[in-house]
Design a protein around this nucleic acid. Structure first.
Lengths: 151, 151
DNA sequence: CCATTTTGTGAATATTTTTGCACTACAAGC
DNA sequence: GCTTGTAGTGCAAAAATATTCACAAAATGG
């Protein structure tokens, strides 16, 4: 439905550009922008968008916060032992599928991203798997070597 | 105080090892472990620990989630107004790899999904990267233009 | 088309979370 | 020893949020 899509977009913008502290507040702001909606619907919208109320220094605030972000944080917790996180590297089409020890995928994906290698266009990580997309002209052996370096 | 430090530790463990959906539930679990506390105090403890209730696939769950996760790296800190979330758009095979500012990938992916464009079959998002699969007969320039519109 | 299912919504309500207030325990300074 | 100040807490109430129910609009499938 056009109506709701528009509303969700408005919500995203409001969340990004200002500190919203409660759903009622958001209801009012949306109304000012022409989106009339009840708090009940807003609750559902926010759930859809994975926008949650989170604690900050001084109060509460609505922002994106979801499982995938938390995984990233958990990683940084226990980097105690230096066991290699990479378990396997396999290819399929222009995809690289990297299996890691549980919890390390997000961290590895981040490291790969930060290397800005010309071989890799981007990554997405779960708890123990990284999907990386290779550049079309990249060589698999080169990529495998490159990724293996992240011990 | 010794008492509270111990309790906070118990809370962390419970949060990490099991799905806790409400503060009352947590009160009960803590009681089982010997920590007797009211829900009110728990609310304060969770705030202190930056543990929030976040939306997941099927329901809600308590977990670490906070500003530091989203603003962890580079820029998203001092965003004042309307900076475009999209950083780059690249192609490989039938994939589009879209890099965004940290935290915005999920929202963008959602917006792309909701547009129901005939050009895009589906998306998957991490924290700062969206993978979108193009229809086999879609033109790259068309797709690039289409995605660029999501400012 | 029509019947059926799915989806989006508001109103009211249930549930959950936060907070104001009062009280206690403990600490520091006199 | 007193006073004063500061945390930590429970209780109760307020505030905020999620969900149930009912219904309408839209999609789906004959």
């Amino acid at each position: 439905m056009k109506e709701r899509d528009n509303r969700l977009q408005q919500i995203r913008e409001l969340i990004e550009t200002s500190d919203v502290c409660s759903q009622n507040e958001l209801v009012e702001r949306l109304a000012q922008k022409g989106c009339v909606v009840t708090q009940a619907t807003l609750s559902r919208d926010l759930r859809r968008l994975r926008i949650n109320k989170v604690a900050t220094e001084n109060g509460y605030r609505y922002m994106y916060a979801g499982p995938e972000l938390v995984t990233a944080r958990d990683d940084s917790n226990d980097v105690a032992h230096h066991r290699a996180p990479i378990k396997s590297i396999e290819f399929s089409g222009n995809f690289v599928v990297i299996k890691t020890r549980n919890g390390y995928a997000t961290g590895l994906a981040y490291d790969i991203d930060m290397s800005h290698s010309p071989l890799i266009l981007g990554t997405i990580a779960g708890a123990d798997t990284v999907f990386a997309i290779m550049r079309e002209d990249a060589d698999r052996d080169d990529v495998a070597d490159f990724i293996s370096d992240f011990k």
